[in-house]
Amino acid sequence: MEGFEEDSLPEASGSQRLFPDPSGASGWAPLHRGIIVLVMGFLMCAVGGLLFLLLSLVVTEAPPRPVASACLSLGLLLGLMGLVWIPVLKEKQRRKGYCQAA
């Protein structure tokens, strides 16, 4: 381990952060995970609805009905989770702003 000195290591202090300061970020940056979950959930729900429609119209040889049910139910679950998660993240961001201001 040549070249390894203790002086080259950064000092551990409470002021160092692993993530950049969110105050410089835009208002939507902290919400990106919730928005992604919401969009993916509604897309999956739409795929499940489309599979049900194709199965009912017998237009094409679509996957069996359990796949359509699973897509529809998982899509609704993810969509609702995203709808709940976004206000929670907004509240967390608001409280963090109050703590930093005080």
Rank of each mutant, 00 (worst) to 15 (best):
V37A: 06
S56Y: 15
Q100T: 11
L74W: 03
K92E: 06
K92I: 14
G49K: 13
L76W: 14
P30Y: 12
T60C: 06
V88W: 12
G27T: 12
L18F: 10
Q16W: 12
M81W: 08
A25S: 13
V58H: 12
A68V: 13
E11P: 08
P66K: 02
S73L: 14
G48C: 07
Q100N: 07
A29C: 12
P63W: 15
G97V: 10
T60L: 11
V84T: 10
E2V: 14
L83D: 02
F4A: 11
W85D: 00
A102S: 09
D21N: 13
P87T: 04
G48T: 08
L50C: 03
R95F: 06
S15T: 08
E2M: 14
S56N: 15
A101Q: 08
M44T: 07
G41R: 09
V59L: 09
L38C: 00
M44I: 12
A62F: 05
G79T: 04
T60H: 05
R95V: 02
E6M: 15
S69I: 14
H32I: 05
K92Q: 09
K90A: 05
L50T: 03
L74R: 02
A25Y: 10
E2Y: 15
S69V: 13
K90G: 00
E6Q: 14
S26K: 08
E5V: 15
C71K: 04
A68H: 10
L38I: 04
V58Q: 14
C99Q: 10
L38V: 04
F42D: 02
F52K: 13
Q16S: 02
E11I: 15
M40C: 11
L76I: 15
G24K: 14
M40A: 13
Q93A: 13
V37W: 07
A25C: 14
E5K: 14
P22A: 04
C71Q: 01
P64E: 10
L53N: 03
I86H: 01
M81L: 11
V37M: 07
K96M: 11
G41V: 06
L76H: 11
G97P: 05
L54P: 06
Q100P: 03
T60I: 14
C71G: 04
G41D: 01
L89N: 03
I36S: 08
G24F: 15
K96I: 11
L53V: 09
G49N: 10
G24E: 10
S13W: 11
L78D: 02
A12Y: 11
L78E: 00
S23D: 01
I35S: 01
L31Q: 02
V39T: 01
F19H: 00
V84N: 07
V88P: 00
L53K: 09
P87E: 07
G49P: 09
I36F: 12
A70P: 01
L55H: 01
L50G: 01
A68D: 08
